[in-house]
Every structure is written in structure tokens, then in C-alpha cells.
Design a protein around this nucleic acid. Structure first.
Lengths: 317, 317
DNA sequence: TGGATTTTTGGCAGCGGTAACGATACCAAA
DNA sequence: TTTGGTATCGTTACCGCTGCCAAAAATCCA
């Protein structure tokens, strides 16, 4: 028992005994077994996090925000990625819950029925991010993807454009991408404009190559298009390169906008107009929220709304 | 006990009992506790993996290769990132080993003395990747970063260039980046050329912005430079954009090469000459190796050497 | 100096599974 | 009727740690 205490910093053990114990442990090559510790103390000191893709700067920022917020408390992150597949997400959630995390952070607000049920019954804080679901499971930290795109459409229309296209994935697997496309359609209709310039760019995650390919088709089928809003900065950059290859000048001949404020948006020539959803903030606030709940603080908000920022750059206007 | 068996697919339980048990478990909201299972059976069904940065397409590919190879066996990945900091890596390794992973995969071949000792004494398979250390701890799957850059230098020299520069991080924190820079210097010297055109681009991870900034300084201080090799495609692309902003044509006025064969290298205009180190392969082979060791197969190789591929594209020649 | 108080240390039990082994039911062959 | 084999199910102990409580040691105070 004293050995156990010696490995905790806060407990009361005399310095001499602690030193002796740590010395002996080192000599014996002893490594603390947190499996047993977790079983006995019924806590796991980690947070489960699922993101759609491991290779995505936006989600990486959210994870970073989370990690930085949780590190001071010694909470580890168990990270899993779903490949934009709800069935895979369900499997992942099941695996994670078996390990008894202190809380679970998921991306998006849509899940399989079973996944939803497991989360509801888990008895731990559940935080949905990057979205504002109608009926959240527990806590929500996110923004309206549709609304953010609407603001972009409104901005373009206010600048006098009317023939605006949207490049995005061709399934609803990426629910945030689908929400952005729906937001585009709704905004165009609200402005009394034709929302039919939709270019499907393949299965998510659609990246630069898909954006370029989609832009090629757009230029061929709807050459009078004045502006293109892309589901992400990566596809927007791909679209931009296709314009460069074809000698179509951006922005004098065509405007391009992306989503996410990835590094490339700021540095591309021309710099890409985009939307910054403050991904780091999402993670940081999720971390703060988890700590609040774990500490039993009262009045922890169920819903935190992030306000994405419109960044108008050289690729438009 | 029968309950325990009912949850394992292979054990012998009659269908009726199993159904009854699973039904009851579902009614009660029972969730299997893998903490207890792991403690009793002394195995953890996961693999620990450390990478320098979560937001890096190359390392993400390695993790993807690993995950795909391990999934058929139900092995999960516990992922941690070190921020290119060996002290942080040490902390991470200590945390991970406490959870008794089946194997551990680390990036790079340089670690703190204590981290190295912990890995050596861990009693589990240790796999170092993305490098070819002189004295590996256990298994190695990687390539010589210095050698890959040497081949690029040799190619440029064979094409008649002599005033070649290198853009990279200014510390040795990113050991692979430092190896690439060292490879550049050695190759230039071997060719009898001046290896002093070294532009320090800041602390890793250096990305697009740092590449652009470094290219700005290069163009100002060494305007007669004929070619630039960058420590990564991201910095190379940043450098390219700086050329575009300043009206310096690539490749007629200056050649640019990167490292990593990121998506952007293939799609940028002009497409970037680069080196493909087959990151997915590194992960896939690490997974296969782990399974071989876990199955007790004989003749598992201690050292697997990947041969990076030189990709000559429009940004050079 | 003796008793009260605080600090430090140790014993016991149990967290929720499973390894190991034993028991039971059932049926076919001896 | 006995024996043996197979399929299924149950009992016991224990994985390595920590909560709880009590004992021992050190410190304090009148």
C-alpha cells in the first residue's frame, strides 16, 4: 500500500521511504500497471475522441485544443477515426465504451441508432462537435454549417453575382459537407437564384484532386459560372489549380471560396476566400467543458455555439 | 463463466444460452469491461503508436497503413503525438507502457536515454520507423533520409546545376529534417560544390508559411541560386508561392523540390519534384511485422529498408 | 515525562473479468 | 449395465492495484 502511495505525488509518504521505494522499483524494472489501477479505482484517466479522418488539419486542430486542455489534468486522449462511415463510428464507439472513458467527444450530430443508444446509456459526458444537432445526446459545441455557407452566398450576391456554383461530395456520408451543400441550395433559393449548379466531386473525403476534377467539369458544362463555393479549402485549392492549368484567371474571370481556413487558403496565390470555424476553439472548449463536468460544477452549458468567421481574400472580388 | 464465454465468438456455448445471455445483457444495458479482461488475461489488444505531429499527411498515412493491417485482428491503436519533442515522447512512452500495449511503434531512431531504456526493458516488440538508426532498439522499418536527399542533389547536378540551396528547420528537434539537411551538405561536398546555401526556416514543424518566408530570404540573399531543395513538400509549396508573388518563374528561373509526395506536390502548378517515401507501406509492413511477432513466427526481419522514389516533375527542369 | 495528536505505514478486501479445472448431461459403443 | 467421449456449464482463485480502516511511529503539548 505504501508503494502505491509512493507513486502518487499527493499522498503522505515520508521522503525517505518514497526514495527507497522508487529506487527499488527502478532496480526491479517495475512499471506501474494502469490497467489494474483503472479497474480498482473505477476510473480510466482518458477521454475517447472520434474524428472522421486522421489526416485533416481542421480536426487535428480540434484534437490539439482538446489535448492541451486535458493535459494539465493528466487525461489522455484515445483517438479513433471513422473514415466518414457511421457504421465504423458505431464499432469505434462500442470499443471505446468498453474501456470506460471519462467522457467521449464525437464529431457531428448524426449517428446510427445503436451508436446513439450506446452513447445515451453510457453514463459519461457525451460531446458532439462541429455541428448543431436538433436533438443533442448530451453537450454540443459547434456551429451551423448551412448557415456559414449561407453567409458566403449572401456576400457574393451582395457583390452583384448571381451564377454561383457549389462543389462538394456526392453522398451524405460527410454530413457536414452535406449540410454545407444544403445551406448553399437554401441560400440561393432565398435569394431567388438558381441553386442547380452543383458539381459532385466523389466520395468523401474529397480533397485537392477531386476539387480540380470537379472544376474541370464545371468549366466545361457551365462556363458562364461567376463564382464557386467549395466544401473545403482543399477542394477549393484543387479547383484553383485547374483554373491555372486552363488559363482561367481567378478572380477576374471566376471567384473561388473554400471552407475551413486551412493553411493553404492563406498562402495560395491568389489567397482563398474561406470560412474559419475556429477548430482549435472547439477542442479547447470541449476540454474545459469536460473538466467542469468532472469537477461537478453547476451550470455547465449544454450547447456552445461557435461563430465562424468569413475571410474575404483575393480569390473573390 | 458461461457469460464470459458467450461474449467470445469462438468458445463453446449452446446457441440458446448465448442468445438468452446476450438478450439479458442488452436488457440490463451491460457493457463489457475490457479493463478487467485485460488485467486478468494479461493482454491489452492494442498497439501504442507515437508520431511527431497529428497534422501531417505522411504520418497519417503510416497510421492508416498500421490500422488497416491490425484491424482484422481486432487490435486497436493508441495514438499519441510528441510535437517533435523528445521529452514529450519520453512522457508519452511512459504513459503508454503503463497500459501494457502488445507492441509499440515509434517514429524516428533517436530518443532520450530514459525513453530508450524503457523501450528496451518493455518486453514487447518495439518498432522504429521513418529512419534507419545505427543501433536499433528492436525492429526498424525505414529509409535513409540523408541518402534520399543525396539522390536529389545528384540528379540536379547531373542536370548541370551547381548553385543549390536547402530550406529546412533550424534545430535538430526534427531529427529526420536534420538528417535531410545533413544529407544535402554531404552530397554537395561529395560533388565538390558549396554546401553553404542553407536557409533556416524556424522551429519544426515547418510548413507552408515558413517555406515562403525562407524563400523570400533566399531570393534576397542569394539571388543567383539555381535550385532549392526543401525539407518537405509543404515548405516547398510555400516557397513556390513566394516565387509566384515575386514574379520569379519556376522552373525557368529556379527549380524547387520537396520531400514526402504530399497531395499538394502532385497538384500544384507547376507540380513539385519530390521524393515518395511510401509512408503507407511503412505502416502496413509494421502491422505485418507485429502480427508475425505476436504469432511467434520465426525469421521476422529486424530491419526493413524502404526505397524512396524520386519523382521528377515540372518544378525542376 | 506521559498522554494526546498527527503523520506514516500496513492489512484486508474487492474491482470485473478469465485461466484452469471440475462437474454434469447426453449419447453411443463395449 | 458399464464405460468412454463430447458438448456444455459451473466453481475457484487470482490478475495488480487502491479505498477503507487500523496500527505503528513520530511529534507535540501540558
Amino acid at each position: 500500500m505504501t508503494v502505491s502511495r509512493a507513486f502518487k505525488t499527493d499522498s503522505s509518504v515520508s521522503d525517505t521511504t518514497r526514495d527507497a521505494i522508487l529506487k527499488a522499483a527502478d532496480d526491479l524494472g517495475y512499471v506501474f500497471d494502469s490497467t489494474a489501477s483503472n479497474l480498482r479505482s473505477q476510473k480510466s484517466d482518458f477521454i475517447a475522441v472520434t474524428i472522421p479522418s486522421i489526416n485533416n488539419a481542421n480536426f487535428a486542430e480540434t484534437v490539439r485544443g482538446l489535448a492541451e486542455g486535458l493535459k494539465p489534468r493528466g487525461l489522455q486522449i484515445l483517438l479513433g477515426y471513422t473514415d466518414y462511415d457511421m457504421a465504423e463510428e458505431e464499432r469505434l464507439i462500442e470499443q471505446f465504451l468498453r474501456r470506460r472513458p471519462e467522457a467521449i467527444v464525437v464529431t457531428g450530430g448524426r449517428h446510427t441508432a445503436r451508436a446513439r443508444r450506446m452513447l445515451e446509456n453510457s453514463g459519461i459526458p457525451v460531446i458532439e462537435t462541429w455541428d448543431l444537432p436538433e436533438e443533442p445526446i448530451g453537450h454540443v459545441i459547434g456551429f451551423s454549417n448551412a448557415d456559414a455557407v449561407r453567409r458566403m452566398v449572401d456576400h457574393f450576391v451582395a457583390r452583384g453575382l448571381s451564377r454561383i456554383a457549389f462543389i462538394g461530395g456526392d453522398t451524405t456520408r460527410d454530413t457536414r459537407g452535406a449540410d454545407r451543400r444544403a445551406g448553399f441550395v437554401a441560400a440561393m433559393q432565398a435569394q431567388g437564384l438558381d441553386p442547380a449548379r452543383l458539381i459532385a466531386a466523389g466520395a468523401p473525403p474529397i480533397a485537392m484532386r477531386e476539387g480540380a476534377e470537379a472544376m474541370g467539369r464545371l468549366l466545361e458544362t457551365l462556363p458562364d459560372t461567376q463564382a464557386v463555393i467549395c466544401v473545403s479549402d482543399l477542394s477549393a485549392f484543387g479547383a484553383l489549380t485547374e483554373c491555372q492549368r486552363r488559363g482561367v484567371d481567378v478572380p477576374s474571370r471566376l471567384w473561388i471560396a473554400g471552407f475551413g481556413d486551412y493553411e493553404i487558403a492563406g498562402i495560395a496565390v491568389p489567397a482563398l476566400t474561406t470560412i474559419n470555424p475556429f477548430p482549435r476553439d472547439i477542442g479547447a472548449r470541449a476540454a474545459a467543458l469536460i473538466l467542469d463536468v468532472m469537477d461537478g460544477r453547476q451550470g455547465v452549458p449544454a450547447r456552445i455555439v461557435i461563430s465562424p468567421e468569413l475571410l474575404i481574400r483575393d480569390s473573390s472580388g
